[in-house]
Amino acid sequence: MKLIILQFISLGAAQILTVLLLSPFINTLIKKIKALLQGRYGPPLLQGYYDLTKYFCKESVVSKHASWIFITTPYIYFATTLFASLLIPTFYDIASLNVLGGIILLIYIFGLGRFFVAIASMEPGSGFCGMASSREMMLALLIEPVMLLALFVLVLMSGSTNIPSIFNLPMLSSCSFCPFYSFCC
């Protein structure tokens, strides 16, 4: 039992670390490819890390109308993203984590993060933030049904809402990241 927990924690930590360290690179890579397709040069491949360094050196400024929600939202949003990264097999397929709730949990965890970002952006009381928040929710509700439909097709084909079983679908083995393209939206 102890061993399982230890293994779980170490694997989880490794997964989180991989995602944390690689995601700025992948983000830039997507931007780079997009730029190349549009005939531009695009940013250098390490731009994500440069940006992060710059942001970490900056001072944080908070509107004086904001409350604790504004302060805690970044941590909650960050946590939901980490949570999702634990559920999706990237570095290692942590099968034991599928007891948590499978694909539906994944969707609602993203929803939870989005909810907090949307209310936090209403905090400063500026017109621009409100507009952004409104559009964020708007886009989410346009995307979500499409994403759900795509995912439910896979669920019905694999006969399971557990994420690894969806991955192991024979038709997806050639391009096992297929279902998660929809998350890019």
Partner: peptide
């Protein structure tokens, strides 16, 4: 194996993960 759901574990995991962001931003940030 169709599906399973463990809400207590979700809460535990969320409460573990939320401080991580805080710690990271404290270590790396201003």
């Amino acid at each position: 194996g169709f599906a399973s759901f463990s809400p207590t574990a979700i809460l535990v995991l969320l409460t573990v993960l939320i401080p991580i962001g805080y710690i990271v931003s404290r270590i790396l940030g201003q």
